[in-house]
C-alpha cells in the first residue's frame, strides 16, 4: 500500500528524490573526474600533441593510431602483457583460494594470519620492486646464496629472458595474492551453512562438498575477484619499471611501461594517448564480458 503525499508522490518516491538530491553532488563530481580525463585522452589521441609542441593546433585524425599499430615491438608487448595477466591471475587464484579455504577453517590466531598475509599488500609497489631486485641479485643476493647452500647453482633471476618473465610474475603474486585471498575469504564467510549440513547428513566427502557446494556458490565472488585482479594486472607498471625496464630484451615489456615510454621518452603524448585509448577499449570489452557472465550466474 502506498501513501500519497501533498506533492502527489508516494513516500518511497520522495525518499528516492531526496536520495538523488543527496548523491547528486558526489555523482556529478565523479562523472567529471572520470569522464574529463577520458575525453581529454581521446581528444589528445587525434592531435599531434608532443611535449615539444604542447598544443592542439594540428588535427591528425587516426594517424597516431596507425603509427602505433605499425610499431615493431607493440605486438610483442601486448603478448607479454597477455601472458603476464593470465599467469598471474591463474596462479594467484589457485594460491588465493587455498589460502582462503585454510583461513576460513582457522579458529585461532585468525587476526595474526591476516596481518602476515596483508603485509606485502601494504608495501608500495616501487619498494616491492627494489626489495626483490636486491634479494634476487645474481651474485650478491640472499636468494642465490640460500639455494647455493643446498647445492643449487645460482639462477640468473632477471638476466635470462624466460626466467625474468616468471620472476616478475612471482613478484607480482607475492605482492598481490592476499588481495585475492581476502576477497575469497569474505565470500566464504558469507556462504550459508545449511547446504553443508545437509550434505554431511548424506555422507558427502569434503572434496565433493567443495566441488558441488562451495565452488557453485562462490562463482559470483570468484568472478568479481578475477575481474578486479585482471584490471589491476593489465595496468601493472611499477614492478617492471623498477626491476627490469622491460628487459632482458622484450621479455617483460608490459604495455603500460610501453605507453609510458612513448609519452615520456618519445615525448609523443598524442601517440601515447592513442595507445592508452586502445588499451581502454580492450579492458572495457573484457570487463563487459565478465560482467555479463557474472549476471548470468544470478
Amino acid at each position: 500500500m502506498s501513501v500519497a503525499t501533498a506533492d502527489g508522490l508516494t513516500l518511497a518516491g520522495r525518499d528516492r528524490r531526496f536520495g538523488l538530491l543527496l548523491t547528486a553532488p558526489g555523482l556529478l563530481s565523479l562523472l567529471i573526474v572520470i569522464t574529463f580525463p577520458l575525453f581529454f585522452t581521446l581528444f589528445t589521441s587525434v592531435h599531434d600533441y608532443t611535449l615539444l609542441t604542447p598544443n592542439y593546433d594540428t588535427f591528425v585524425g587516426l594517424e597516431n593510431y596507425e603509427e602505433a599499430l605499425d610499431e615493431e615491438y607493440l605486438p610483442g608487448s601486448l603478448w607479454v602483457t597477455t601472458k603476464f595477466v593470465l599467469a598471474s591471475i591463474v596462479i594467484e587464484f589457485i594460491i588465493g583460494f587455498a589460502v582462503a579455504l585454510s583461513l576460513h577453517a582457522t579458529r585461532r590466531f585468525g587476526s595474526i594470519y591476516y596481518l602476515i598475509l596483508l603485509a606485502p599488500l601494504l608495501i608500495n609497489p616501487v619498494v616491492v620492486g627494489l626489495l626483490w631486485r636486491m634479494l634476487l641479485h645474481s651474485e650478491l643476493g640472499i636468494i642465490n646464496y640460500a639455494i647455493g647452500l643446498v647445492g643449487i647453482s645460482p639462477v640468473s633471476w632477471l638476466g635470462d629472458a624466460d626466467i625474468a618473465f616468471w620472476t616478475v610474475v612471482l613478484t607480482d603474486i607475492w605482492h598481490q595474492v592476499s588481495f585475492m585471498a581476502i576477497l575469497l575469504v569474505a565470500g566464504l564467510a558469507a556462504l550459508p551453512r545449511e547446504p553443508y549440513e545437509a550434505a554431511r547428513m548424506d555422507g558427502a566427502s569434503t572434496i565433493s562438498c567443495f566441488i558441488h557446494i562451495t565452488l557453485p556458490l562462490m562463482r559470483p565472488v570468484i568472478a568479481v575477484a578475477i575481474l578486479l585482479r585482471m584490471i589491476f594486472a593489465i595496468k601493472t607498471f611499477d614492478i617492471v619499471f623498477i626491476m627490469t625496464k622491460g628487459g632482458p630484451g622484450t621479455a617483460t615489456d608490459l604495455i603500460s611501461y610501453y605507453i609510458y615510454r612513448a609519452a615520456f621518452f618519445g615525448l609523443d603524448i598524442g601517440r601515447a594517448s592513442a595507445m592508452a585509448a586502445g588499451l581502454l577499449v580492450i579492458i572495457v570489452a573484457l570487463t563487459a564480458y565478465l560482467y555479463r557472465y557474472m549476471n548470468s550466474l544470478k
Binding site: H137, S138, E139, P154, S156, W157, L158, G159, D160, A164, T244, G247, P248
Partner: peptide, 8 residues
C-alpha cells in the same frame, strides 16, 4: 661478467 649482469 657475472651471469645475470645483462640485467644490472
Amino acid at each position: 661478467s657475472p651471469a645475470g649482469s645483462e640485467a644490472y
